[in-house]
């Protein structure tokens, strides 16, 4: 069954909101990792460097999620407006077929309504393409996150006494990255399903 765009867009916004929360968790992980790396001293210099990347990545993801969130929220609003214009337009089209004595007197309102429908539907298509591009951008972040997770594991292995703790952190990064990826996949799946 086809889902109305305003529902889809709102659901995408919700997925991206979740992704943003995960990214905030990632930023916290980065902070903990840095504190640990500082305490661990020279053996964890590599790991410490990585935490900067994690930090940067987290704030990139947060920024981007917020942006996509904004796009999908206004998309959802436009879709509601389009749905209303469509509803009115279909009533007008029905009225036109009735050949009413005073049917012509509606001409101007009908025209305005049809034009508004056209404008909104173009706006919506542009918005959907923008959303698609942004989600692709999000995939790049995920690839970066996976790289970081792998390097963290490698660095953790040579951190002596701190190995276990750093491995937990490396593991956290992997988990978070895969959760964010899941939200992005969900968002893309929503975007690709049949729209009305």
């Amino acid at each position: 069954m086809a889902t109305p765009i305003f529902v889809t867009a709102a659901s995408i916004a919700a997925e991206l909101h979740q992704a943003m929360l995960e990214a905030k968790g990632l930023a916290l992980t980065a902070k903990n990792a840095r504190a640990l790396a500082v305490r661990a001293g020279s053996k964890t210099v590599g790991f410490k460097a990585i935490t900067h990347f994690i930090d940067e990545l987290a704030s990139d993801i947060i920024r981007q999620s917020q942006y996509i969130n904004g796009v999908s929220e206004s998309l959802s609003q436009q879709a509601v407006a389009l749905w209303r214009a469509n509803t009115a337009a279909s009533k007008f089209e029905w009225l036109e077929r009735q050949q009413l004595p005073w049917g012509e007197s509606l001409r101007e309102s009908m025209q305005t309504c049809y034009e508004e429908r056209e404008r909104l539907s173009q706006l919506l298509h542009r918005g959907l393409r923008e959303l698609e591009a942004q989600l692709e951008e999000g995939d790049k972040h995920i690839r970066t996150a996976n790289l970081i997770a792998t390097s963290s594991k490698v660095e953790a292995a040579s951190a002596g006494d701190f190995r276990a703790q750093l491995e937990v952190i490396a593991h956290n990064i992997t988990i978070t990255a895969s959760q964010i990826r899941q939200h992005l996949t969900n968002a893309r799946r929503l975007l690709n399903q049949k729209q009305v």
Binding site: W94, L95, L100, W102, G103, E104, S105, L106, S109
Partner: peptide, 9 residues
């Protein structure tokens, strides 16, 4: 539809 049978919009 019913109304437009009596008056223009």
């Amino acid at each position: 539809s019913a109304v437009l049978k009596f008056v223009p919009a």
